[in-house]
C-alpha cells in the first residue's frame, strides 16, 4: 500500500508533466509521435502484466491490438455504429478470444501459451489480410471516423494526446493497484515458482487465464485508440513483427515494471523515427536483443541485472 501511495505521487507528477507537454508543444509531428508512444505504452503495459508479472509469454499480442482496431473500424465505419458502442464490442471480442486461446494452453506449465499465441497471431493476421470484403485486405481499411463526445470531437492532435495519455495514466494506476493486491501477489508467486504457488493454494491456471484476458482487453483498447487516431489501418501494423516489437518493449524497458513499459515503448517508438536505417534492420535488431537477453539474462533485463548484482554481492560477502 505504501508503494501504491508512492506510485500515486509519481503518477501525479507524470500527469502534470504530460499536461504541460500537451499544452505547450505546438508541433503536430511531435504530438503525433507522443500519441503513438502513449498507445505503445498501453500495449507494452498490457503485455508486461502478463509476461513481466505472471511470467507468461504471448507472441501474438499484436493480434489483440488488431482485433481492437478492426472491430471498431468495421462497426463504426461499415455499420455506422457509435465508436463508444464499438469499444465494448472490441474489448469483449478480444477477451472472449483470449479466453478460448488461453484456457487450454494455460492449464499446462511451460511455454504453451507462447506457442499457442504465436500460431493464433499468424492466423489472425491472415484473416485481416485475406477477408477483403470485411477488412479491406492487404490495402487496408480506410475512413475510420474520429471519436466524438456530443459535439466535442477528438479531432486535433492535442485533444487526442490528452485522451490517450489520460487512458495510459488510468491504466498506470489500476495496474499498480492490481499488482499490489492479492491478485498481483499470486501472479508474482506464479512467476517465481508455479508449483510452490499451487502448493500454497493459488489456482494457477485460473489466475494466468484472468491476467491473459485482462492483458488482451488492454491491447484491444490500444488498438481502438490507434484506429481512431489515424483513421486508416492495415494488416502490417498487427503482424508477427509487431508482436515481437511489443515483447521487445517489455524486455528492454524492464519486466515487471510499470514505468519500464513507458521506457520500452518510448525507445521503440522513437528509434525508428530517429534512425531511418533502423526500419530496415528492425526485425534483426529485435531478434538480437531478445537473444542476448534470453542467453545472458533469462529472467529479463531488470531481474537479470538485479540477480547479477546480488550474486556478486553474495560472493564478495563470502
Amino acid at each position: 500500500m505504501i508503494r501504491t501511495d508512492k506510485h500515486l505521487i509519481a503518477c501525479f507528477v507524470f500527469a502534470a508533466a504530460a499536461t504541460a507537454t500537451g499544452l505547450l508543444v505546438e508541433n503536430a509531428y511531435y504530438l503525433q509521435v507522443m500519441i503513438f508512444i502513449g498507445i505503445n505504452t498501453l500495449l507494452a503495459l498490457s503485455l508486461n502484466m502478463l509476461m513481466g508479472y505472471a511470467g507468461q509469454i504471448s507472441l501474438g499480442h499484436a493480434a489483440f491490438y488488431g482485433i481492437g482496431a478492426y472491430t471498431t473500424a468495421i462497426l463504426s465505419t461499415t455499420y455506422n455504429i457509435s465508436p463508444w458502442l464499438a469499444l465494448p464490442a472490441a474489448v469483449f471480442t478480444a477477451m472472449a478470444i483470449a479466453y478460448f486461446v488461453g484456457r487450454p494452453t494455460l492449464r499446462l506449465t511451460g511455454y504453451y501459451l507462447a506457442m499457442g499465441t504465436l500460431g493464433f497471431g499468424i492466423i489472425v493476421n491472415i484473416i485481416f489480410r485475406e477477408w477483403r470484403s470485411v477488412t479491406g485486405g492487404a490495402s487496408g481499411f480506410v475512413g475510420i471516423p474520429p471519436l466524438e463526445i456530443g459535439s466535442f470531437a477528438f479531432d486535433t492532435d492535442r485533444r487526442y494526446f490528452f485522451l490517450v495519455w489520460g487512458v495510459v495514466l488510468f491504466f498506470f494506476i489500476i495496474c499498480r493497484r492490481i499488482i499490489d493486491s492479492r491478485v498481483g501477489r499470486a501472479l508474482r508467486a506464479i512467476h517465481d515458482g508455479e508449483h510452490a504457488a499451487a502448493a500454497v493454494g493459488v489456482d494457477t491456471a485460473k489466475m494466468k487465464l484472468k491476467i491473459f484476458v485482462l492483458s488482451a482487453a488492454m491491447a484491444s483498447l490500444a488498438g481502438f485508440l490507434y484506429a481512431h487516431q489515424i483513421f486508416f489501418i492495415s494488416p502490417g501494423t498487427f503482424s508477427f513483427l509487431a508482436s515481437i516489437r511489443i515483447v521487445t518493449m517489455v524486455v528492454i524497458g524492464g519486466m515487471a515494471s510499470i514505468w519500464g513499459s513507458l521506457l520500452g515503448a518510448s525507445l521503440l517508438t522513437l528509434l525508428p523515427e530517429w534512425l531511418h536505417a533502423f526500419a530496415d534492420y528492425e526485425m534483426m535488431i529485435y531478434g538480437l536483443v531478445l537473444m542476448l537477453v534470453m542467453i545472458f539474462l533469462p529472467q529479463g533485463l531488470t531481474r537479470g541485472i538485479l540477480d547479477i548484482y546480488e550474486n556478486s554481492r553474495k560472493k564478495n560477502d563470502k
Partner: peptide, 20 residues
C-alpha cells in the same frame, strides 16, 4: 521453495491466498 523476488511479508501474504 520461496517466492524469491518477493518480500518476506509478501511470501506469507501469498500463503493467505485461500483465506482471502
Amino acid at each position: 521453495e520461496l517466492f524469491s523476488s518477493m518480500s518476506v511479508l509478501e511470501n506469507v501474504l501469498v500463503g493467505l491466498h485461500t483465506r482471502t
